[in-house]
Design a protein around this nucleic acid. Structure first.
Lengths: 339, 339
DNA sequence: TTGAAAGCGCTAACAT
DNA sequence: ATGTTAGCGCTTTCAA
């Protein structure tokens, strides 16, 4: 009734366990007729390999752990798709965890991953997980960072240059003659946020007369964006920003909604630019200008890097792949001011 | 250098392996000082339980497999959040698979799940996986369906009444005096699609003079919605629909984009209603009217059902939980026709 | 309260 | 080409 084992298959096929194992792993080494009998026995019993036993024996699970901050942000699911694709091609499966769902966040997941004996970890770090990652590696589980470089270069990483991304956004807004800018983002203890702001600010600093105000909130989702949008809309015109750079698209989409709900026009009254360029941005009724990160490619590159390291841990040299972000100009900033 | 085992811990603490095991599983049964020594040894060695070995011994992995059609649809990630929450509370972890990423689709994932010895499976079935699920159950792995009922009532399920949902959409559109309706959806071999259409059509049938055209496409995402939107916009007014019911929100959002890009007004020229009510719908610049499914709740209910079954497989009676969909009226249909 | 030993299902080295 | 056997790390009787 329960799961059949290799032993059952062997008995039914009238061969030894190792022959069955060979049929599974080295079909070439086994005589055709024995192979056929084993195959039939497998079918008949509905035999399925027990990964736990295999893993225990082999010391490898052929599993990669992917730790995401927030699975409901399409940027991350795009990354995940890329990871899965590359992993599958190399014969790995992906154990997906989203830290938002755990009280203990990313650390909790890393522990689960380790217990499950994943061969390696892919992580989009938000908090400070480097100690934990170091520990993991000392015990033989390597990891690759996504969307974030490791300053000490102790881990491979795949990211987009967020400083450049921030400056792209600023240049674009300034070229549109916007002068009163807001940066809206998550907590600045997250490196990605800091970098985007840094790039943005550096450009603004070269433009005397242009003001920049920084607003941060713990939540970086559509709802919190909408609240900020409404707040902006209620500010008298002379104090109101004429452009907003939101540190991710969900936020930006929310801001537009909050703004327009109160009658402001985007981009005429307030231009809005986001970050990530998720699919919804292009399809929004006011298509969103956004700084694109090649999310899917980042995912597959990270997985590839990890798999390379797994294949030859000794000789592998850590690498940092940094992509250039790309400005996607759309309606949310396209028209000139005040028209 | 590699992973420390219970044996190493035992040696360092100067106790037997079983004492270490007891510290881990029945701390009460072990003398305080021995316990302390073991604890310290665990810390010092950075010992982490090997789930594979534990699983092999116990026959249970404390893992639930969740098979989703498409991880980039926020509806599914919301379901996943609900699942994770309920699972975590009960001490289970979730192995997440999205069938879109596999050439062999859901079946491929079910096989992975079985190999990984998940204790149970949660699945949003699209194709015909019942044979496979039957097989799984025969070998001791139960499953619960999400977003779909099993006609034979052989599996528990959690779903929303899609027929009612479809009729809600139709009634709303008709109350707005729309007469030329289009249904846009995925392939009709997917039960959910059929049901939504059925409910929609049943209402329309009672209204002589109202026409309904059905358009299906394999892809049900923003891009394909946009293409259809553009196509509609290019139709001369007298043949053009005055309302569209899209079978999910990603499609609907795309349709609106395609429509407005060519200068049509939503809802004045064409009213658009979606399905699922994902977060982006409310925040879209033309907020989308949608039939809401309680995605998160569906996820947690399904997980709860599965966990109950796992706890007492003998006496568990399959149950079908059916939620009522809810019409969320927003701007994409709100204004009357032609204004 | 603690320890010794068996065995979960699998693979691989070795023997035939 | 096939079989025998040891052992991966853990839990769990059973005995002390």
């Amino acid at each position: 009734m329960s799961h059949a084992s290799i032993k059952d298959v062997a008995a039914l096929a009238g061969v030894s366990m190792s022959t069955v194992s060979n049929v599974l792993n080295n079909p070439g080494r086994v005589a055709p007729d024995a192979r056929d009998r084993v195959q039939r026995a497998i079918e008949q019993l509905g035999y399925v390999r027990n990964a736990a036993a295999r893993q225990l024996r082999l010391g490898s699970s052929k599993l990669i752990g992917l730790a995401l901050i927030n699975i409901s942000n399409p940027f991350f699911t795009d990354v995940a798709s890329g990871v899965e694709e590359a992993a599958r091609e190399a014969g790995y499966s992906v154990l997906l965890g989203n830290s938002a769902s755990r009280p203990d966040g990313e650390t909790g997941f890393l522990e689960l991953f380790e217990k499950q004996q994943v061969d390696g970890v892919l992580i989009v770090p938000s908090g400070d997980v480097f100690d934990k990652l170091d520990e993991l590696r000392r015990r033989g589980t390597p990891s690759v960072l996504i969307d974030r470089v490791d300053d000490r270069n102790a881990f491979s990483s795949v990211s987009t240059d967020d400083v450049v991304g921030g400056s792209l956004a600023a240049k674009h807004l300034l070229s549109l003659r916007r002068r009163k800018l807001w940066f809206i983002g998550g907590m600045l203890d997250v490196k990605q946020m800091r970098d985007r702001l840094e790039g943005f600010r550096a450009i603004v600093a070269n433009h005397p007369g242009v003001t920049l105000r920084v607003e941060t909130d713990e939540r970086v989702d559509v709802t919190s964006g909408r609240e900020i949008g409404r707040r902006i809309a209620s500010i008298p015109e002379q104090y109101r920003p004429d452009a907003v750079f939101a540190a991710n698209d969900m936020l930006a989409l929310g801001v537009i909604h909050g703004l327009t709900a109160i009658g402001l026009r985007v981009p005429q009254d307030v231009a809005v630019i986001g970050y990530d360029d998720i699919a919804f941005s292009e399809a929004a009724a006011i298509p969103l200008t956004s700084v694109r990160q090649p999310s899917r490619r980042m995912g597959s590159a990270a997985a590839t890097l990890l798999i390379e390291e797994l294949a030859d841990p000794q000789n592998f040299r850590h690498r940092s792949v940094v992509y250039e972000p790309q400005l996607m100009v759309r309606a949310s900033t396209a028209a000139s001011k005040g028209i």
